[in-house]
Amino acid sequence: MGFLVKIPVLDGRMQQSVRNLFFHVPMWFCMQTLFTVSVIYAIRYLRSQNPVHDIYAVEYARAGILFGVLGLITGAVWANYQWGKPWSGDPKQNGAAIALLIYFAYFVLRGSMNDIDKRSRISAVYNIFAFAMLFPTIWILPRLTESLHPGGMGSEGNPGLNPNDTSPEMEMVFLPAIIGWILLGVWITTLRIRLQIVTEKKLAHE
């Protein structure tokens, strides 16, 4: 599934850093997808009390953080050459950093509790709050202020991507790139989930 990712590398059309659209932007789409799946499993855990759902929620959040951090670093690299410095205090940069810190706190919270049932339940509730905070920090607040990213105050369109600025050829690469990166993210998450479930079973048998 992850081989789809090769498509953006092969595209040899635009000799510009605009090509980062195929790498930096799908990181955030992937993060958003993984966090969404994570909160769905957190809710399912609260309804069913099934520990497997808790494992799903944790691992999806973990992979989401991986892609979020990668998105942040790639954004800083890109900004260094496009906007002059790696961190210009852009509202979207700050918002994304805050959202990631909230998710880091999720793992701190989990690490601080020894009682497994209590840990799973409280972290599932926290996961829902963290997911709720994701929307103001990366989707709403950057739109309300002036931003270097597309979609800030005074510029048209959607934050993250502006359909008016992309050509049909770019769309043709961009959409498979999003799908490919998301599938890659889901795949590496399921690897960890399978490992975690096997480990739990092993512990239960001992």
């Binding site: 090509r19 790498f23 790639t74």
Partner: peptide, 17 residues
């Protein structure tokens, strides 16, 4: 045309994964 910025970004992603 700043192509190496894209290369750097890809390297970061590969490194992270």
């Amino acid at each position: 045309g700043k192509l190496y910025v894209v290369v750097a970004v890809v390297v970061v992603i590969v490194f992270g994964i």
